[in-house]
């Protein structure tokens, strides 16, 4: 028996972010002086560090839908990738009660393969049992609803079409924890309402949603809790309306 951590109102904790910091090491162009050039070992670059996320801790519960707002470069995408288990933090740990799924403005998985084949290999990489893959391909293709384009190479898709395929793959496998990084914005009106319905359905089944968006309307539609991230630090954490107002006033 494993213990189920719960909070005061009874919902189980689905994810715990424990003191997470992320430091990127980057090479910036060195000044074009002889001294700088020699110092950089004639590589013409100088190493630099960017602290994108600073000591972030938080808990999210099942059925909760957390929004993250903040200016460009405030560390939202970085934090999301760490929470999804895709980017190892420099310090800290993330605990989850099921495999999270990240939906980003992703690059084409395999640009040379058709949409249908990308769905197939995507599902297989997610360790979906091969017996179920055939049926799921159809379900994903139906939901993405991009017609005959499903048989064209993914590299030829518009960003909206690609987003539809990604969203369809990521949600058809019904993840218990779904993270969305500005990925709804590119869909058209019809697809957006379908996407909201999918998100609601996941949440009703005790799923957890973490949602990054620059649209207040989207955040209000989806989230019941919001954190405001600024320069990698949580400035506010609370009910959607309150935090959005606070952020707007800044």
């Amino acid at each position: 028996m494993t213990m189920q951590p719960t909070d005061s109102n009874g919902a189980a904790i689905s994810m715990m972010v424990d003191d997470v910091s992320v430091v990127y090491r980057v090479n910036t162009e060195a000044k074009l002086s002889m001294g700088a050039l020699i110092k950089s070992g004639f590589s013409g670059r100088s190493p630099d560090k960017i602290q994108a996320v600073k000591k972030v801790s938080l808990s999210i519960h099942e059925g909760e839908s957390l929004g993250i707002v903040g200016n460009n470069g405030s560390g939202k995408s970085t934090l999301l990738r760490v929470m999804a288990g895709l980017l190892p933090p420099t310090v800290g740990q993330v605990y989850a009660n099921s495999e999270p799924m990240l939906l980003g403005v992703a690059a084409a998985l395999r640009p040379g393969l058709s949409g249908r084949r990308n769905i197939e290999v995507g599902l297989l990489a997610l360790a979906i049992h091969p017996d179920r893959v055939e049926g799921l391909i159809e379900e994903v293709a139906d939901f993405a609803d991009i017609g005959r384009a499903i048989n064209r190479p993914l590299g030829t898709y518009s960003s909206g079409m690609r987003a539809r395929v990604h969203f369809a793959i990521a949600t058809t496998v019904r993840p218990r924890i779904l993270m969305i990084d500005e990925a709804l914005g590119v869909g058209d009106k019809h697809f957006k309402s379908k996407s909201y319905a999918r998100i609601d359905e996941l949440r009703e089944h005790a799923g957890t949603i973490v949602f990054v968006s620059h649209s207040n309307a989207e955040i209000e539609r989806v989230c019941n809790r919001v954190i405001w991230l600024n320069e990698g630090v949580i400035l506010a954490d609370g009910p959607t309306k309150e935090v959005l107002d606070e952020y707007a006033a800044s």
Partner: peptide, 30 residues
């Protein structure tokens, strides 16, 4: 549908190297 390697209900660290056995299992599933 669930992915094959879903964890039990307890919280598990996401950024930990799975032991060899589990790593190989995860490969085998794919």
């Amino acid at each position: 549908t669930k992915t094959n390697d879903q964890m039990p209900s307890g919280l598990q660290p996401l950024h930990a190297m799975p032991p060899l056995r589990k790593y190989v299992d995860q490969l085998w599933q794919r």
